[in-house]
Amino acid sequence: MKSIEQIRATFDQIFKEIGKVVVGQEEMLKHTLVSIMCNSNALLESYPGLAKTLSISTLARIMDLKFSRIQSTPDLLPSDITGTYIIEESNSGKKSFKFQPGPIFSNIVLADEINRATPKTQSALLEAMQEKQVTVGNTTYPLEQPFFVLATQNPIEQEGTYPLPEAQSDRFLLKIKVGYPSVDEELEIVNRYAEALKNINLKPVLKKDHILYLQNLTRQVPVANDLKKYAVDIVTKTRNKKGMIEYGASPRASIGLILASKALALIEGRKHVSKEDINRMAFPILRHRILLSFEAERNNLDEDSVIKQMLR
C-alpha cells in the first residue's frame, strides 16, 4: 500500500501538472478529481471561457486516460454518441455489419454544453453514466474502466436549450460551479496565453490501475457514525424545509455526500472524514438536487445560500 503521504504527494503532483496549463480553478479541479475518485460523473456549470474543457482535457492527459469530447447540438443523435453499425466489406467481397464505437467509448467523456442536446440524446448518456455500458441494437457493450462523463452547461443563453430533467441531473454526483478567476490569476492567464505559445510538456502522473486502486481506497476511508448521521440529516432537511425547497434531495444524495467527503479527505491526505469535508461537499452534492420554492426565489436566494442554512 502507498502511504497516505505518498497518496497526497500524488495528488499534489496532479495539481502541479494541471497548473502548468490551467491558472487557478483549484476548487473546480479538486471537485472534478473527487468525482473521478468516486467513479462518478460531474456537471460543470459556468459562463463560457473559464477553462472547463481545457481543464478536463489536461486532466485526461495527466491521468493517461483516453479522452473524447462531444459537442452537444440540437441535431446530435444518440448514435453519434454511442456508435452505430456500419457495413464492412471483406477482401472476399462479403459484406457484414460491424460496430463502430462512438465517442462514449473513452475513459473521460466531455459532453460539452449538454443542455443543447435533445432529451433523447441526453438520455443516451444515462445508461453509460449509470450502468457503465452501452446497448446498441440487441448488443450491450461494456465501457472501459475507469469511465467518467463530465458534462458542461452554460447558465446563460437558455433559448433553444433542453434543461436536464431531474432524473438525469440526479445521476451526476456533483454540480461544480466554475467561477471567474481573480485579477492576479487573470493577469497570469494573459501573460501565459497572449504571448508566444510555449510547448507545455505534461507528465502523466497516474495510470489506469492507479486510478482504480485509488477509487477502491476512497470507499475504505472510515467515517465516524455521528458524521454519517450529520450528512444524512443535511439531506433529509432538504425534504423538510418546505418554505424554501419545493423538492428535496433523494437518498442518492446521502450516499454521494459521504462518498464525496471520503474522496476529498483522501485527496487532502487524511485517513478519515471530517465534518469540514461534509460541509464543503454539501454544496456540489445538493445544489442540482433541490428545487427552490417561489418564496426562496422571491427572497433572491440561490441553491447555495439555502444549503448554507442547513449546515452546522
Binding site: 481506497l217 475504505q220 472510515p222 465516524a224 457514525n225 458524521l227 485517513k271
Partner: peptide, 16 residues
C-alpha cells in the same frame, strides 16, 4: 474526529 472514527470502525479491517 480521529478517536470517534476509530471507535466506530473497530470492526473494519483495511489499509486506511
Amino acid at each position: 474526529e480521529k478517536l470517534r472514527t476509530v471507535a466506530d470502525n473497530l470492526d473494519k479491517h483495511n489499509e486506511l
